[in-house]
């Protein structure tokens, strides 16, 4: 029996992956669409009262994505749950360290604009990196 044959993906794996991507995709597309729309046409700094609602609107598809991830975690098996937990831990750790580093730097009086984005981007990157690493195990 060849190694490639041995490593043939299970039908269940394909179904779980397909369902996860199908559930996650509307959240990703929705977030990108809303984010692009409000930054392009939102005129967020005009001082209008509804700008606050416009500015936080990309959170809605993110909530959808959180639900999709939770549903995925419930579907995967016990070993994969451990792996995904490790990738969450990595993402959380990196996000918290970044937030703490920014707060500590802020104590020196140095103000860097948009530092909150570093928390989000580095946390998400660490989670993604952790997921890729976990899937290669």
């Amino acid at each position: 029996m060849g190694k490639a044959h041995q490593r043939e993906q299970a039908q269940g794996d394909r179904a779980v992956t397909r369902r996860y991507l199908l559930e996650l995709a509307p959240g990703i597309v929705g977030f990108l669409a809303l984010f692009l729309a409000i930054t392009t046409w939102g005129d967020l700094e005009s001082g209008k009262p509804w700008n606050f609602i416009l500015a936080v609107s990309p959170i809605v598809p993110i909530l959808w994505m959180i639900v999709a991830v939770v549903r995925h975690v419930r579907r995967i098996d016990e070993f994969q749950q451990i792996l995904i937990l490790q990738s969450f831990a990595l993402g959380f750790g990196v996000a918290m360290l970044t937030a703490l580093a920014i707060a500590l730097i802020g104590m020196t009086g140095i103000v860097v604009i948009g530092t909150e984005w570093y928390v989000f981007i580095l946390g998400m990157t660490a989670w993604l990196t952790g997921s890729i690493w976990a899937n290669r195990r």
Binding site: M1, H5, Q6, R7, E8, Q9, A10, Q11, G12, D13, V16, I76, D77, E78, F79, Q80, I82, N135, R137
Partner: peptide
């Protein structure tokens, strides 16, 4: 004569999990 994928489907787990079990990386 089963593949890891076939066993994974029978057990209701991923092929990755079957591989981790076989290589001793994970105890069920």
């Amino acid at each position: 004569g089963w593949t890891q994928g076939a066993l994974a489907d029978l057990l209701g787990v991923s092929r990755q999990t079957v591989n981790a079990l076989e290589t001793g990386k994970y105890d069920p």
